[in-house]
Design a protein around this nucleic acid. Structure first.
Lengths: 193, 193, 193, 193
DNA sequence: AGATAATCGAGACGGTACGTCGCGTCTTTTC
DNA sequence: GAAAAGACGCGACGTACCGTCTCGATTATCT
């Protein structure tokens, strides 16, 4: 029976492993992280990690979900769409600009590139909520009906990803604002809220 | 530890190593690729690889430059900016959608993510020419002066990258066209050519 | 940690565990045998094994006693000591030569070698009866008083063990007879019975 | 190519590994010995051990050969066969009686029991020389032609092994002498040398 | 007969050693 | 002196068992 029973899972271990993972990520970074070190730090056996996760990347992913999962992702609706977008775009840009967060995200993206399942997890559990939140705000903002909102949302985040990934330019607040202006124009800036 | 003398370098080995690298990349993918396997396949010694390259990623990068670094990247200028953009965006989307070509891009992106200096190489030697070509076309197309062309170019390629990376939606011709429409609106579609 | 109550012991489990042990010994050999496998095969929990036995070796020992501990070991006394010895030595040699029976002996010997207290059990409960039977026959056979019978008995079985253990020669009927002849000479073959 | 080239073997590593093995055997005993510990102590990689030996038992065996291999095994020939045998039998008995040596020999015998190849090595490289030496001395001692010398030699060592293995009695000097007396009677003690 | 308590099957757990894999260096021999 | 070949020290990997533990579900005695 190579399929363990989730009902009998030890919650204390699970927590200890995720906590240890986050701690080690902060201390040493993703590349230096090893499954053995996580287990040792968590006071767990390696087998316990391999029983419930696929390996290092899966644990890290879970640890990050765990961190992020708290918190409301809904965007504010002040009535001023441009201002609201500026807020979220500036925040996103800042997050990508932070080298600490960036390192782990980068590593996870590598996994994403080579593991289809992983890509799905990242997309659905980490990204989708945020994308949907922006999508909702756009809809509420009176964007013309002929604009494909899915494409529109990616028009916002795509360039940031691209710039971060390929380091084609600085990730500054000024950049964020310019981007918002272009996006507003794209979706018809007569929209007001 | 004396720095090796490039003049005495064996061209035959160099070629064999790069060819082997590409072949193995196709067959097994980047993650499974090992320096030992490249050496064995190339009929080379591992030391020869470490003498002339920094390691796996440097060889891969070189092998990919070697493949790609041909061809003219200038965009056509038919006078119809929207039509010209459609051409290039459709082509790009198709390239990302093709699993075969996608594999190479994937490998490159992995490199980019893992190594700062590699990122620079990829950006400057591979990406920049294409981005600049589009930028030139935009400038020639009469885009208003207040539009930051660097941001504009990324407004085109960012979403494609994003969608490809995170599989948030299909990479179809229809998608390409919608994207172009949004971008045209963003940069002020009164522009004509 | 309360000492378990033997009165409440489940006989069905005990049997199933011993049976499973013997079956697995036959199928895979002692070295490959694991407590987990015994438990699984017996439909028992591992704890049940550790509750009643000290571990793998204790279970194996018990399982083997269980198999062997039947039958009369007394030697015949036809009046012809040489003939009687031939009988028992030929039988012993045949037993060691038989790969099937040999497997069990092998397992037992492994136990004996690994654990002091096990060695005592094997010696006293399994071996001693047979050695004593031969010793009795020798005494009745009129062996001179100055011959140490314990040493004499081992003069018979020692060489067989040695040859079996180290494969220094064939275990044939002819060998058995030669051995008996030497032993008879050693203990003074004027003895008649 | 899973077959390493012995010509390229590093003698320094070989020595360090065998030395470390013997040192650890002395310090901790066979059961507590691990391949990882040997490698660490020898300043070698585990792979180097697995490359040249089959595992722990093979290394230990080799380490013991290495210790024993020095030294002449020929028996003295004083003209008095009984006296000469007493010497060698007393020495053998003393060796088996020593708990330190005994532990390792015991462990190796376990391996011998389950590994045919190993049994051959032990027999041919460790035992045979000694057995042959005794055999030669017997032949020179004028043992009657009708005595099978192979059987005779095992008549000496078999009982010792048996007693050691199964702990059926003490391994003392007195025992050694009694054994020699019986053996001398068996092979016809009119023999003089 | 119902309450009480220990045993039972099952298997997750912390741990240790395993044997393998790949890295980047070092050594030997050949060209 | 570069190159082919591959052994080497190292260290992480993912697996196998160990012996302990926790969890209901079953007995099996004792009120």
């Amino acid at each position: 029976m190579p399929t363990p029973d989730p009902a009998r899972r030890n919650e204390r271990s699970r927590r200890a492993i995720l906590d240890a993972t986050r701690a080690l990520l902060d201390e040493t970074g993703y590349a230096e992280l090893t499954v053995g070190a996580i287990a040792a730090r968590a006071g767990a056996g390696k087998q316990t990690i391999y029983r419930w996760w696929g390996g290092k990347s899966a644990v890290v992913l879970d640890a990050l979900f765990d961190t992020v999962a708290t918190g409301d992702v809904a965007l504010p609706d002040t009535g001023d769409l441009r201002a609201d977008l500026r807020l979220v775009v500036r925040a996103t840009v800042a997050e990508f600009a932070d080298p600490r967060l960036s390192a782990t995200t980068r590593a996870l993206t590598v996994e994403t590139l080579s593991d289809e399942t992983m890509a799905g997890e990242v997309r659905d559990r980490l990204l989708r909520p945020q994308l949907d939140a922006v999508k909702d705000r756009l809809r509420a903002g009176g964007v013309p009906a002929d604009v494909d909102l899915d494409v529109a949302v990616e028009l916002i985040f795509g360039p940031i990803y691209h710039r971060w990934l390929l380091r084609t330019g600085p990730l500054t607040e000024d950049y964020a604002d310019r981007l918002v202006d272009l996006v507003m124009a794209a979706i018809g800036d007569r929209a007001s809220g």
